[in-house]
Amino acid sequence: MKTNPGRFFEDFRLGETIRHATPRTVTTGDVALYTGLYGPRFAVQSSDAFARAIGYPQSPLDDMLVFHVVFGKTVPDISLNALANLGYAEGGFRRPVYPGETLSTVSEVIGLKESSNRQTGVVYVRSTGADERGETVLSYCRWVLVRKRDPEAAIAQEHVPTLAKAVDPKDLANALPPLQAGAYDTALSGSPHRFGDYAAGERIDHVDGMTVEEAEHQIATRLFQNTAKVHFDGLAAKDTRFGKRLIYGGHVISLARALSYNGLANAFALAGINAGRHVGPLFAGDTVYAWSEVLETADVGRPDVGLLRLRTVATKNQPCTDFPDKHNDGYDPAVILDLDYWAFVPK
């Protein structure tokens, strides 16, 4: 057989390393298309002149574009037959990536757990994205619910890994080059608020909404070479519990990140992903809103930037004026994403 039907749960082995195919050179064309899809407005990633003024050689790629490219490499080997991507942890953006660099991905299977119905199982992987020199640019863990080919197939070894609840901010402090915070022009960035203006516990309604069109998420999954059937194949999607194509969860993350500009315009670079959960599905025609809470502020000893630990919650078809959140019986029905991450902010 020369074609690849994708792995099913019983095909994974604990501890195996998977080297994913098709390295991807990311260009300014990808940046333009990413901007067209999500509309991010962070000044460092939008303007070479702004980036050079504070110490970058040029504008780096949006961190979520890097994430999607690294993630997309894993799909044919990890989640082609997935029903849902369940969560993230221990993510670290190790350095800026610039147009013209080539990214590739390797994953290690760090956990396997068969579902009680024996129809599916959860696969835990640690994926590492590297440049053409082999230097790590991003690493993260995720777990995904994957179909079994044969419900009766025996599983050789099961293990649920223990993952850190949060990434130590000190481990992320050197992800950026030394910057000239004094040259960071807040008039051009769109907000006067710097690191010292944020405090743990405050909540920010990002106000704006963005409606998702069918063509947009199809273009996005193609851009990232994400071949998961639930996003691409409308016929196959009819056999799922949703009965139609599901929008890629990373698409929701990028929308929420872009919307967060209104209130967090100077949180210009992601540093780490502590935890993340796709709470509910999103479909074409839905409108996405977002709000964020500052969970923690971390002065990591740099004179130029500090880190904010942010929790961004995305909703569908419900503005966030009342901060839709968890309740005693679970999440508010409008919530679709709950993401906990670190971001750099100038001092």
Rank of each mutant, 00 (worst) to 15 (best):
D185V: 09
A187F: 15
A187H: 11
L188C: 02
L188F: 09
H193T: 14
G196N: 15
D197M: 04
Y198G: 09
Y198I: 01
A199Y: 07
A199H: 09
A200M: 04
G201K: 12
G201H: 10
E202P: 02
R203H: 06
I204R: 14
H206D: 12
H206I: 07
H206S: 05
V207D: 02
G209S: 06
M210D: 04
M210L: 13
T211Q: 02
V212N: 01
E213S: 10
E214F: 12
A215G: 04
E216C: 06
I219A: 04
I219F: 14
A220R: 00
T221Y: 05
R222H: 13
R222A: 09
L223F: 01
L223N: 01
N226L: 11
N226Q: 15
T227E: 09
A228R: 10
A228L: 04
A228D: 05
K229R: 15
V230I: 07
H231K: 04
F232L: 14
D233C: 15
D233Y: 04
D233K: 12
D233H: 04
G234V: 03
K238G: 13
D239R: 13
D239S: 11
D239M: 03
T240V: 00
F242A: 14
K244S: 07
G249R: 13
V252N: 06
I253A: 11
S254D: 15
S254T: 06
A256R: 04
A256V: 09
A256K: 07
R257S: 11
R257L: 13
R257W: 12
A258M: 09
A258C: 06
A258F: 08
L259K: 05
S260D: 06
N262P: 12
G263T: 09
G263P: 03
F268K: 01
L270Y: 05
L270M: 13
A271G: 09
A271S: 14
G272H: 13
G272F: 14
G276M: 12
H278T: 01
V279I: 02
L282N: 06
A284Y: 11
G285A: 03
G285S: 05
D286R: 09
D286E: 06
T287L: 07
T287M: 00
V288P: 02
V288E: 09
Y289G: 08
V294C: 06
L295D: 04
E296D: 01
E296I: 01
E296C: 08
E296H: 10
T297S: 01
A298T: 03
A298C: 05
D299L: 03
V300A: 04
V300S: 06
G301D: 05
R302Q: 04
P303L: 01
D304W: 00
V305G: 12
V305K: 06
G306L: 15
G306E: 10
R309M: 08
L310C: 02
T312Y: 04
K316W: 00
K316Q: 05
N317E: 05
P319E: 10
C320Q: 05
T321S: 12
F323M: 14
P324T: 03
D325N: 11
K326T: 10
H327L: 15
G330N: 08
